[in-house]
Write a protein that binds this DNA or RNA. Structure first.
Lengths: 126, 126
DNA sequence: CATCTATATGCCTTGACAGGCATATAGATG
DNA sequence: CATCTATATGCCTGTCAAGGCATATAGATG
């Protein structure tokens, strides 16, 4: 029996792979056997099984055995890490969008300006 | 002059790299020159510059030149993609946590049960 | 202009992952 | 038990990213 150490990826890395995102998206609709995923994804069965392995190691899915079939079910909890990291940024971009709106409102009255940056704020030394 | 095609990573992939997340986190506090980041991150300057290149290509940062220095500034907008993908899952895990709460409330009255799964719901054929 | 400073880029090595293909494993069925 | 079905795993290969090191580039300064 070979050990084959699987390094265990972070939620960030797991989700960086587009096909794994698709798998999670499918599992959002409910649990599915592997063959089902294979059909929908158009990937080979081994490929899907390997992605599922990664997802399972990252605790993003659960498996339930049904005879020879394995039913995979979504476990969204690990995504909380992603969401927490993202939270402070969410605030930033919504502020930005607000600012943009206000800017556009103002602009409506003003004449079109040349496409330059702000008036060159004196460079600092070091 | 060498072309050196940089394949342009998705926001997901960009953010999968821990050091790049740290860079973004630092830039959240305001714009910084490269040297600053080098000091704070304990990475070599070329390494940092390369990460910044990736971040710039993904439009996650802006550069402003200040003599020999380059001031990097955060641009959170591309993270919206990440957030949108995440949104439906956010719903799921909050439901789950609610369910857990309710469950724990109920449990308070019931006798402790053996650590088995639900009563083996008859397996389906295919 | 010689030199210093700040940063970018090029080349190279190493390690890892994704997928292809073959095969192992385990339950079902006659 | 022989065979079929569903899935997992192993091996191999191509690809590519991350970082180390050296060097190029560009502005500053005397």
């Amino acid at each position: 029996m070979n050990q084959h150490i699987h390094p265990m990826l972070s939620a960030f890395e797991v989700v960086a792979e587009p096909n794994r995102r698709r798998i999670l998206d499918l599992l959002r609709e409910g649990q599915r056997p592997v063959g089902d995923l294979v059909d929908r994804l158009g990937l080979t069965q081994p490929t899907v099984s390997k992605h599922l392995r990664v997802l399972k190691d990252a605790r993003l899915v659960d498996v339930e055995q049904d005879a020879q079939r394995r039913l995979y079910r979504l476990r969204p909890e690990p995504l909380v890490e992603l969401d927490s990291w993202l939270a402070p940024y969410r605030e930033l971009w919504s502020r930005r969008l607000d600012a943009l709106e206000r800017h556009l409102d103002t602009m409506a009255d003003e004449p079109p300006a040349p496409t330059r940056r702000s008036p060159a704020p004196k460079r600092r030394k070091r």
